[in-house]
Design a protein around this nucleic acid. Structure first.
Lengths: 218, 218
DNA sequence: ATATTTTTTTAGATTTGTCTAAATTTATTT
DNA sequence: AAATAAATTTAGACAAATCTAAAAAAATAT
């Protein structure tokens, strides 16, 4: 079955919001997709007709199994293309998102499976997010917030949950990226700010609000 | 400026028909795009409004300079993606067309220039068609002797330099004519004879003295 | 528990690209 | 040169995805 780019975008957005907040609302979805609530309602009805969504008006909605399957294939495509753009075409991981938004709608499954093979079956995309396998299975791995790791323990940045331009700009300035190895040296109780040490660099400080969006594996 | 996939398809189709036949007709274009003449007329008006096409009703049409420029960028994208699919993802050159039809509408110019670089600035796509450079310049097809083309590369017979009755009789027997598409499968060092494969036919052998008079474009 | 606010949905319009059927223009025949 | 045929265009309709404005339902506050 093939779906329009627009439908695919809805499915992906619902999938992400569902993961994050458990429940998805019409307004939240409209906000995520930069559109109007009325447009969302229109599309929800279409997705229901195609059995991609379980939806009763005013009663909320969530993806059907089929809808989840389609969403995972799009997530897979998005993340593999991002990996390709960074690893092979040498883009920075902060500039690939928009290109991947387009590439994720290329339909051929054979193409994406070949791309996966060409890239060496990567487990995570350049932002640290896991890449679903060919059958759509998503490996869960535990990302821990910087706030929750013990002092003086080497940790590797695996994921940035807030990927706003502003956040990325700040992290770039502090030399923090996916894969950066660091240790938390001090925690200040007053404002929950952290002092970090990155190998071969001088100590830096980040606020609680930044730290809670930086996830690591230890 | 960004154009819809549909507009891009029209521009590309007009470009190709223009190359081939000099003049393009509404019917020919409808046939090429598998659509109806009425739909073509509708689109021609839109393309004119956007100054991509010079068009006066009932008087025929052709691409403006701007339209040609856009068409060449799409051709560039199509051929680079085909090259990528064959060289990097190991698809056969006969199975990549539909995928490239989708990929050619990915908008980022930076992406396609990086891809070009990644691929080593190839001059021709897997079908032998020339790839426009970053500025949209299209290298003129050169006529090369069959003796000088690489193995397993699709070539189209463009010229026969010796047009004696004897030569033409021989070529007729071998089913070789202007426009015939073939590949050189083997070169025998002993007598420089060649083994050729024409689509849908069994392999044939020709001598060096015949081959040097058959020119092709790749 | 009623009033108010917020969220969601409906009704009707708009844009893009397509279609069919009919009209018009151009080309071809006799 | 008039008649016929072919090519092209117009008129009016439709589907997909979106929008605005208004109505309906649910949530919240007094």
């Amino acid at each position: 079955m093939k779906y329009s780019s627009s439908k695919e975008n809805y499915l992906k957005a619902i999938f992400h919001l569902q993961e994050e907040d458990g429940v998805v609302t019409t307004n939240a979805l409209a906000n995520e997709l930069q559109t109007r609530p009325a447009s969302v309602t229109d599309m929800l009805k279409k997705l229901k007709t195609q059995k991609l969504l379980l939806y009763e008006k005013y009663q909320g909605f969530k993806l059907s199994n089929e809808g989840k399957k389609v969403a995972l294939q799009i997530v897979r495509k998005h993340r593999l293309w991002e990996f390709f753009l960074v690893e092979k075409l040498h883009f920075g991981w902060e500039e690939v998102h928009d290109m991947a938004e387009e590439l994720e709608h290329i339909s051929s499954k054979k193409l994406i499976d070949r791309l996966d093979e060409f890239l060496g079956f990567p487990k995570n995309d350049p932002h640290g997010d896991p890449i679903p396998d060919s059958s759509g299975k998503l490996a869960m791995k535990q990302h821990i917030s910087l706030l929750d790791i013990p002092l003086n323990t080497l940790a590797e940045v695996s994921n940035i949950s807030d990927q706003s331009i502003e956040m990325l700009e700040l992290l770039k300035h502090k030399s923090i990226a996916i894969g950066t190895k660091l240790e938390v040296k001090r925690k200040f109780a007053f404002d929950n700010s952290l002092e970090l040490k990155i190998k071969n660099q001088s100590a830096i400080t980040i606020s609680e609000s930044v730290a809670k969006n930086v996830f690591v594996i230890i």
